[in-house]
């Protein structure tokens, strides 16, 4: 997180985690869930450690309690409009080697629920 290490306060990861749990419960009901697969890109601004921390708390008392959290973290990929090259990057300060910041971000900003394993 650019703002420092994860804290136990209501960081945005808590709101994100609440959205994850709400969306899953809304979709599949209260049935027990064994695992949740998420996709959180490395340029998304969301810290996966914080999501894991919050998930234990938010999932408590729901069908997701104790579920395993599998998180895919796709790397960032960008296209430089200046030198017309595509390259990977994981730094939120996005610069091409040519020095240009005029980039199209192609991947790395994902914030998605992929699937759940239902018991």
């Amino acid at each position: 997180m650019p703002g420092g290490p994860p804290s136990v306060g209501k960081v945005h990861e808590l709101a994100i985690t609440e959205s994850i749990v709400d969306a899953i419960v809304e979709k599949i009901g209260d049935g027990p869930v064994a695992a949740v697969r998420l996709e959180i890109g490395r340029l998304s601004g969301v810290v996966t450690d914080s999501i894991r921390f919050c998930f234990e708390i938010v999932a408590g008392g729901t069908g997701l309690e104790g579920a395993r959290l599998d998180i895919d973290e796709p790397s960032g990929r960008a296209y430089c409009r200046n030198c017309r090259l595509e390259f990977t990057l994981d730094d939120p300060i996005m610069l091409c080697d040519c020095g240009s910041a005029d980039l199209d971000v192609l991947a790395g900003r994902e914030l998605r629920i992929i699937s759940v394993e239902v018991r």
Partner: peptide, 19 residues
């Protein structure tokens, strides 16, 4: 059913879709 007694449900949705 998978061997481990679970089935996978694809959701494929944005976490912030509701917002």
């Amino acid at each position: 059913p998978h061997d481990h007694g679970t089935r996978t449900v694809l959701l494929e949705q944005d976490i912030l879709a509701k917002n």
